[in-house]
């Protein structure tokens, strides 16, 4: 082997860095996303520990005598019309909103991932069929259809989750499909085929690991969509039925009182706006960090 170039060496100090390392650093460089992430963490903590943060339950009408009281040192967000501590209801609303977002996003991935992977990998008739289904979903405005479905099923927690997933999977599916299509003809897939790897082996070992970024991004971006859907439906009275606290429902209630008791309208509005904004900004930052080529999609 005289002619072969000398064995190539690499400095020992050079640390090997995987894709996750670079993604993490790209994320840290995005100040807005980091800020959103910190705020999101705070909101999550508040939601998780809501039962321990205030002394009362969200539905306890403990302060009936001072119903509709304005915010004070004792009741940060005031008291609602039925004598319940509004701050307690807002932070319990976060539990409802975020848990629906997470559950719906999980279902969206559960539906969108296999369909997207199948459509992207096999192409042809299967792809055509799945794309026609998606076309149907794209000419039906999701909120209107969701409204219809929610009204027909009379709302409720699990129906809302399922409805949100029904309209959330399309985006996940399209993202996974695009990624799989981009990778399907890569030569390392061909090399694995040349080695005799089965279709399942290739999908599990090569396609899915390389689709992790769009899956995570699709998951995170599906969360605010589901949260907005829930809030919208609850606002219109077909979502989460009272007395379970939901921000959309509370905003609707707030309209009736806004001229005199503005706090009933303001706090749920701000809570919803901030949470949705923070989740979206975090998701966008994550997308840009995980896969710069997905930017703006």
């Amino acid at each position: 082997m005289a002619d072969v170039a000398p064995v190539l060496t690499i400095e020992a100090s050079h640390k090997s860095r995987g894709a996750a390392y670079y993604a993490w650093h790209r994320f840290l460089a995005n100040k807005g996303a980091v800020f959103a992430g910190v705020l999101l963490l705070l909101i999550l903590l508040v939601a998780v520990f809501a039962p321990f943060l205030t002394g009362v339950g969200p539905n306890e009408q403990k302060y009936l005598t001072s119903a509709l009281a304005f915010p004070s040192a004792e009741h940060w967000f005031g008291i609602d019309d039925l004598g319940r501590d509004y701050f307690t209801r807002i932070i319990h609303g976060a539990r409802v909103s975020i848990s629906i977002g997470l559950a719906a996003a999980s279902f969206s991935v559960l539906i969108g991932l296999p369909l997207g992977a199948i459509a992207g990998y096999f192409g042809g008739t299967i792809d055509w069929f799945i794309m026609r289904i998606i076309e149907i979903f794209s000419v039906v405005p999701p909120l209107l259809a969701a409204l219809l479905l929610a009204a027909l099923t009379k709302g409720g927690y699990f129906n809302i989750v399922l409805i949100a997933a029904l309209f959330g999977w399309v985006q996940v599916c399209l993202m996974v499909r695009a990624q799989v299509m981009a990778f399907r003809n890569k030569e390392f897939i061909r090399a694995a085929q040349a080695l005799g790897g089965s279709t399942w082996y290739i999908i599990l070992r090569h396609i899915i690991p390389n689709s992790i970024s769009p899956i995570i991004v699709g998951f995170v971006l599906a969360i605010p969509l589901a949260m907005m859907l829930e809030a919208g439906l609850s606002f219109l009275g077909v979502g989460i039925p009272p007395p379970t606290p939901s921000w959309g429902q509370m905003i609707n209630l707030g309209i009736n009182f806004m001229f005199f008791y503005w706090h009933l309208a303001l706090f749920p509005t701000l809570a919803l706006a901030i949470t949705v904004l923070v989740v979206t900004m975090f998701g966008d930052g994550l997308r840009d960090a995980l896969d710069p080529t997905l930017k703006g999609r």
Binding site: K186, F188, A191, A194, G196, N210, I212
Partner: peptide
């Protein structure tokens, strides 16, 4: 075909897309 695959292998032009980046 699988056992015969071991007898014949291929290398491609694009070295970057020939290797799984993960």
């Amino acid at each position: 075909l699988k056992p015969h695959r071991a007898q014949m292998q291929i290398i491609f032009q694009d070295s970057y897309s020939s290797l799984n980046p993960m």
